[in-house]
Computed example of a mutant assay.
Amino acid sequence: MRRALPLSEVYTLLEPGPVVLLTTAHRGRANLMAMSWHMMMEFNPPLVGCLVSGANHSFEALRKTRECVIAIPAAGLAKQVVKVGNASGRDLDKFAAFGLTPLPAKKVAAPLVAECFANLECRVADTRFVNRYNLFVLEVVQAWIDSTQKKPKTLHHHGYGVFVVDGETIRLKSGKP
């Protein structure tokens, strides 16, 4: 039986990828936020679209510095990721408060997150959609993988405190070997 779904809940059906941590550094202060709304836009160079609400403390830092890091946590960091997402960096050092370790990046001022299995250093490539949609187009300029974290499972937000962890991996024939 079909029922009408409130439009405010549509986002729970279109989860675009793993929950990530977006880090910024502005005026000598590092911050991080949890983010679910991102998408690959191009492969070479790698471009990522990220929606950062204008209400988030990180929005202004990203707008001013035009650089950030997208840190990808494994599911074991779920409780910390949720705490990061439920707190504001305006008056709180989220790295210290939630036991996360900032590491220096190579090409941007924003820090890497040591506990994450991947970190993507990014620069803003296009701002045409920022004023209207809060959508930043980022170019990944350096990527890091922690090879000690074997087969990390990512966390996916389905709304209202509901998360799914990566499940079974299947392989199907593709045009690439």
Rank of each mutant, 00 (worst) to 15 (best):
V82P: 00
V82R: 14
A55N: 12
A55P: 00
R90F: 11
P73D: 06
A61K: 05
P73F: 08
H57R: 14
R90K: 15
N56V: 01
L62V: 14
L62P: 04
R66M: 08
G54Y: 00
K64T: 11
L92M: 14
V81A: 14
V81R: 11
L77E: 12
K83N: 14
A71F: 05
P73C: 05
V69I: 06
F59R: 08
G85S: 11
D91W: 10
L92E: 09
A71Q: 02
A61V: 01
V84A: 02
E60N: 11
S58M: 01
R66P: 01
K64S: 12
A78K: 14
L62Q: 08
G54K: 15
R63L: 15
C68H: 00
V84M: 04
L77I: 07
E67W: 00
G76D: 12
P73I: 02
R90H: 15
N56G: 01
I72C: 09
L62H: 08
G89R: 10
N86P: 00
H57L: 04
P73T: 05
G85L: 10
N86I: 02
L92S: 06
A78S: 06
S88T: 14
E60T: 11
A71R: 05
S53K: 13
L92D: 03
G89C: 07
V81L: 08
S88P: 08
T65H: 07
N56Q: 08
T65Y: 02
S58R: 01
E67M: 03
K83H: 11
G76W: 05
V69N: 03
G89M: 12
R63H: 15
Q80C: 03
S58C: 02
A78G: 01
K83M: 12
S53Y: 06
A74C: 12
N86R: 14
V52K: 00
A61S: 15
L77V: 08
T65D: 15
L92R: 09
A87E: 12
K64L: 04
G54R: 12
I72F: 06
L62N: 13
K79F: 04
